Simulated assay, not measured.
Amino acid sequence: MQPYLFPYLGYFQLIKAVDMFVIYDDVQYIKRGWINRNHIFSQNGKQRITLQVLGGSLNSLINQVKVGSNGEKLLKTLQHNYSKSPYFKDIFPLLERILLQKEKNLVHFLDYALKQTCEYLNVHPKWYFSSSLTKDNTLQGQDKILSICKTLGVNEYINLPGGRGLYNHEKFHQKDLRLSFIQPRAVEYQQFNTSFIPNLSIIDVMMFNSQKQCGRFLKEYDVN
């Protein structure tokens, strides 16, 4: 998976479901995509947050992009929106460590954020960067994924539902690989006294739920 800024619960359910997780960092950076953006709760509905990036052009790989300097501003936004949430005191120090880190490479910045979040959620698969794996880097798309699977010696590749249109079961079968997709189940919890807003950043899940309840939510998925 490409690294994302505090992705939604389903992303971490995927990490929970696998033995090996690969940060897909040597692919094209998508400008105005979701690598450095997400949605959080606000009293007026969902609110977008954006991590400032530098050098994110159409010709850049994700691991060539740099992080800007709006970490403190993002923290103030998160504090404003979540300071009265039940688990704010537990989660805000985690967000401070992540957003105030000195790392300026986007991939390593997001990698740290994902690992710190996984540590809190007690999720610990083997962890790799695709750029560090021996593979045919002239390949693209599905063929590049198949090459990564071969390098790691796996027998099953699991992706999120959005990958259904990208990958072909027969192609994987020809390589003696099973292609599966995780399907998150609907999860709902109390967000102050407002109507529930689904599929927000993992920040929202952690702010409103205990560590134990977050662990239960991580199991709310099917694989097929």
Rank of each mutant, 00 (worst) to 15 (best):
Q142R: 09
G163H: 01
V187I: 14
D136S: 08
I145N: 00
F192T: 03
S147D: 15
I197G: 07
I182T: 03
K144G: 01
T138K: 06
L200R: 06
K135H: 14
D204V: 06
F172M: 08
D136N: 15
N193H: 14
I145D: 00
G153K: 06
R185A: 10
S201C: 13
F172P: 04
Q140N: 10
G163Q: 03
R164A: 08
G153Y: 08
G163A: 03
K175R: 12
H169A: 15
I148D: 00
V205D: 07
E156F: 05
K171N: 12
Q142P: 02
N199D: 14
E170L: 15
S201D: 04
N168W: 08
R178S: 10
S147Q: 05
R178D: 04
K171G: 02
N137T: 15
G153D: 12
F192S: 06
L166C: 11
E188K: 13
L160K: 11
E156W: 05
N137S: 15
V205H: 07
R164S: 06
Q140C: 05
L200Y: 03
S147F: 01
I202A: 03
D143A: 10
Q142T: 04
V154F: 08
R178K: 15
H173E: 12
F196H: 12
L146E: 00
S147G: 06
T134V: 15
K135Y: 06
I182F: 02
F172C: 09
S147H: 04
Y157H: 06
P161H: 09
